[in-house]
Design a protein around this nucleic acid. Structure first.
Length: 883
RNA sequence: GGGGGGUUAGCUCAGCGGUAGAGCACCUGCCUUACACGCAGGGGGUCGCGGGUUCAAAUCCCUCACCUCCCACCA
């Protein structure tokens, strides 16, 4: 075996081996219980980022774990067409080429889109494979492929026929740059330092007259929209203006007559208490306009330019430019009363970044209120768990206040809406054009040019990927799926909508648990961004540390409800852990001779502990408990805890102690029964425990262990996941070995404290009560090996010899007395001071009748033992400091 | 305005009723026959502030402060 640990040397090899062995192929139907995770399909826009790496790691971890537990495990991969995002990328390319989609035409443009998709889909596959993802690639899907497109059409037609999808003219969030409607969720509020313009509107019949009584002053942040005003509104309870309701004001610049209406939505306290009403360009005004039957005058078009309605001098201007001109004009007309600085929130398009323009337009809407109630019930009744459950309140708040979902987009890349129009203007919704023609009674049809919101197809993902609407073996085998792993940032965009559609179309929730991960951040907890230059690239990290170290880091940092601060130092630490595992295996293989991994039957190892010595019993007991803990933590989605248990068992117990304890036996100096077999067995099961997090390293090493093929003939990925072995668990042995460990550790510390050089000849005293004393005598060779004393006496240390009491072991160390240096003296004095406080505390507690009466017995006993040990330590410290 | 999460060692975070923990960083020794991606030892914390419950509180309850995120948004 190579001495150097080099993950890059073997990771790709195992990825190929797994692929060629088809080990991750899931069966449908299957006799075994199934486990299924649907990948949140990455956008075909580019490379995978750290968020994908995190989520993919956790999904792979769960899938590998369940697969090893014997489940028919499916992790179904795929990609999302990501309408706006992808179309934008390709359009950007076109701009560079000096053309645009309109010039190419829809058909040619879509060919470009598909070429792009092929390229990036390939990248995503390759990157997932680099990470060690155990997807079933034979079942890969794409949101625009034939099957999923059919599912989209079927879902749309059904919702339409149920009356849950409607076409209508409403106010929507419009992105002038993208020239499409977007949903409420795609609007992001950003604080903007703007101005509040106070504009005077003359009252009718008083145009020529001056003075405040003849005009109403309106405060607005968007003066350019006043060209579309069709009324003024005041609060009917507002004493200042009540008498004006029913009167008429005159719109400056354009001279339009504006009725003054009373509406309770007007806040008397804000601005001047008078609101200008622009039904075509503001959602509130739109609502007020509807209440008062006001006309809507559109002065801004779909590209953000002023329309002809805006009048001479303004038509054709950009909305920002128009604002400047309107203000200039008002000022010239003497109607600009004042301008205040005003910070307020303005909706911006999340995708393109520009301010959203509220616009009245004809769009398709989906009424999701009923489905939202079902989604609420699914969580409340425990059929769907949100992990961590702190998300439940957010979930409830959103679903309880849900509004119709605008599902149409004025794009080309996506599922074209299955609606056709007849020459006489009828709208026919059907599964295909043939059906539409039949229903319409004519084949002169034009399909609606719009496409559906990307999230509409994503909402069907858990079942459209399994063949829905058909009743396929896949659907029967894997649906409902088990777990969804995704970021909390798409809880509403995607998770809620999947649950709503899942319940609506299939009658059951699409998965039983959602594990919501945090955001991947940099080592300082800063959000990663291009401008900060702190972006980490998973591919680069894999080259540097290996995929397993990256996976371990991400899994170990995933603690509930927190972001994931990815730290290179930490990742280097986990690569070092890989090195540790590598070397522990290298050592074992060089020492075990002809021994083999113990055989198993029905997953339970046939390794009886009857004739084994304490160290062997101890490590088997610890292994069993570790396996139990790791399984438990994985059930709870506590990947951090599972990793921590694996790390501390392997490094802190197996390597630091058991391997050391095995050395005198393996070298033949102090033989014990079946040490090599135990070592191999523990190692083999440890590698299996580690496999879901560190698949490559565990496979690489496991394949070298003599006897591994009896566990599984081909791959560790299909070997059983270790569970607890009750027959190995032994509290008494654990207590004894732990006392030995505590004593050894204390002796080493004492040696350092006394400044004894590593090779200084010392006399070591050890004494304990009863069985523990016998146990220590029995393991004399181990104590000699670990502590290398010149002489070992199983007796209480005489007076004057530096000594201590720990874990029930009285120990002493006699060697060349070395004077304490000043620094060490100070340290010990500090320790002594703290100790005095602790002793006083323990003494008073033990003297307190309330404590003795009410605290449980073991707690009192623990306190007594602790006090004894602190007193022993105090004596040693006092003696040392006096000397 | 409403709601969530957070405040523990220099940094990033576990712990959530019975002696304050991890990784990294730091200090001191060591190439001890698997590993210097290592071994051994060590320093470092009024667990945000103030109350309360309890024999016992970082851990449960309440007030406050600060930091974050989400939702809504007054033109």
């Amino acid at each position: 075996m190579q001495k150097v640990f080099d993950p890059v040397a073997y990771e790709a090899r195992w990825q190929r081996y797994w692929r060629e062995g088809s080990f991750f192929r899931a069966e449908a139907p299957s006799e075994r219980p199934s486990f299924c995770i649907m990948i949140p399909p990455p956008n075909v826009t580019g490379r995978l980022h750290m968020g994908h790496a995190l989520q993919s790691t956790l999904q792979d971890l769960l899938t590998r774990w369940k697969r090893m537990q014997g489940f028919n495990a499916l992790w179904l991969p795929g990609t999302d067409h990501a309408g706006i995002a992808t179309q934008l990328m390709v359009e950007r390319e076109l701009v560079k080429e000096g053309t645009c989609r309109q010039q190419l035409g829809r058909e040619v443009f879509l060919e470009r889109m598909w070429a792009w998709k092929e390229l990036y889909q390939g990248n995503i596959r390759q990157q997932l494979e680099m990470l060690g993802a155990s997807c079933d690639w034979t079942r890969e899907r794409f949101t625009l492929d034939e099957g999923l497109s059919r599912a989209v059409r079927v879902a749309f037609v059904q919702l339409y026929r149920e009356g849950l999808i409607q076409r209508g003219e409403y106010m929507v969030n419009w992105s002038p740059l993208l020239e499409t409607a977007i949903s409420d969720l795609e609007v992001e509020m950003r604080p903007v330092r703007g101005k509040l313009y106070h504009v005077a509107y003359p009252l009718e019949g008083s145009e020529a007259a001056a003075g405040d009584a003849n005009r109403l002053v309106v405060a607005t942040t968007r003066p350019e929209t006043m060209l579309g005003d069709t009324a003024l509104a005041v609060n009917p309870d507002d004493e200042r203006y009540r008498h004006l309701i029913g009167k008429t004001a005159i719109l400056p610049i354009l001279g339009r007559r504006l009725p003054i209406v009373g509406d309770a939505a007007v806040e008397p306290g804000f601005g001047t208490g008078v609101l200008k009403i622009t039904p075509a360009h503001d959602p509130h005004d739109f609502a007020i306009g509807q209440r008062h039957n006001l006309p809507a005058v559109q002065v801004i078009d779909k590209r953000g330019k002023m329309t002809a309605e805006a009048g001479e001098g303004f038509a054709g201007l950009d909305r920002a430019e128009a604002r400047i001109r309107v203000v200039e004009r008002l000022q010239a007309d003497g109607l600009l009363v004042k301008v205040e600085e005003h910070e307020h929130n303005v909706g911006h398009s999340q995708r393109s970044g520009e301010p959203v323009e509220p616009l009245i337009s004809t769009q398709w809407f989906c009424n999701v209120e009923g489905m939202a109630r079902q989604a609420l019930d699914a969580v409340r009744e425990g059929r769907l768990a949100l992990v961590p459950d702190s998300w439940v309140k957010t979930w409830e708040h959103w679903l309880e206040n849900i509004k119709p979902w605008c599902i149409s987009r004025q794009l080309w890349w996506g599922h074209q809406i299955p609606a056709w129009y007849t020459p006489d203007g009828r709208c026919i919704v059907a599964h295909d054009v043939a059906e539409a023609a039949r229903l319409a009674g004519t084949s002169e049809l034009v399909q609606d040019p719009d496409v559906l919101d990307t999230w509409f197809s994503s909402a069907l993902w858990p079942f459209s990927t399994l063949g829905w609407p058909d009743d396929t073996p896949e659907r029967r085998t894997f649906y409902s799926t088990d777990v969804l792993v995704t970021g909390f940032d798409i809880l509403f965009f995607w998770v809620a909508r999947m649950v709503m559609f899942g319940l609506h179309f299939t009658g059951t929730e699409p998965f039983h648990a959602v594990h919501l991960t945090g955001l991947v951040r940099d080592a300082e907890g800063q959000k990663m961004s291009k401008t900060k230059g702190n972006i980490l690239d998973p591919e680069e990290l894999i080259h540097e540390y290996g995929a397993d170290a990256l996976r371990f880091t991400l899994a170990a940092l995933d603690s509930p409800g927190r972001d994931i601060p990815v730290d290179r130092g930490r990742m280097a630490g986990y690569r070092a852990f890989g090195n540790k595992i590598w070397n522990a295996t290298r050592f074992s293989l060089s020492k075990v001779g002809e021994a083999r991994v113990a055989a198993s039957r029905d997953g339970q190892p046939e390794l009886a502990t009857d004739d084994l010595a304490a160290p062997e019993r101890w490590i088997l007991s610890r292994l069993s408990r570790t396996a139990a803990e790791v399984n438990k933590q994985l059930e709870l989605f506590r990947f951090d805890e599972a990793c921590s248990r694996l790390y501390h068992f392997f490094w802190g117990e197996l390597c630091d102690w058991y391997i050391e304890l095995s050395k005198p036996a393996l070298s033949g100096d102090a033989p014990r029964p079946r040490v090599a077999e135990v070592l191999l067995t523990v190692l083999e099961r440890s590698l299996r425990l580690l496999h879901p997090v560190m698949p490559h390293l565990s496979e690489e090493l496991w394949q070298r262990l003599p006897g591994h093929e009896a566990v599984h003939p081909q791959t560790i990925a299909l070997a059983p996941y270790p569970a607890a072995v009750p027959g190995w668990e032994d509290d008494a042995v654990e207590a004894q070995v732990e006392a030995l460990i505590a004593a050894v550790t204390r002796v080493r510390a004492l040696r350092a404290e006394l400044s004894l050089p590593p090779k200084a000849p010392v006399v070591l005293y050890l004494a304990a009560e009863g069985e523990l004393d016998a146990f220590l005598r029995q393991h004399e060779p181990l104590l000699r090996f670990l502590l290398r004393p010149q002489e070992l006496r199983f007796a209480a240390p005489p007076e004057g010899v530096p000594q201590d009491l720990v874990g029930g072991v009285r120990l002493g160390l006699q060697g060349g007395a070395v004077a304490l240096d000043a620094q060490e003296r100070q340290r010990l004095a500090g320790e002594l001071a703290k100790l005095e406080t602790a002793i006083a505390g323990a003494e008073s507690r033990l003297g307190d009748a309330a404590f003795l009466g009410k605290a449980p017995g073991p707690v009192v006993e623990q306190q007594r033992q602790r006090l004894r040990e602190m007193q022993a330590r105090r004596q040693q410290l006092r003696q040392g400091l006096e000397a």
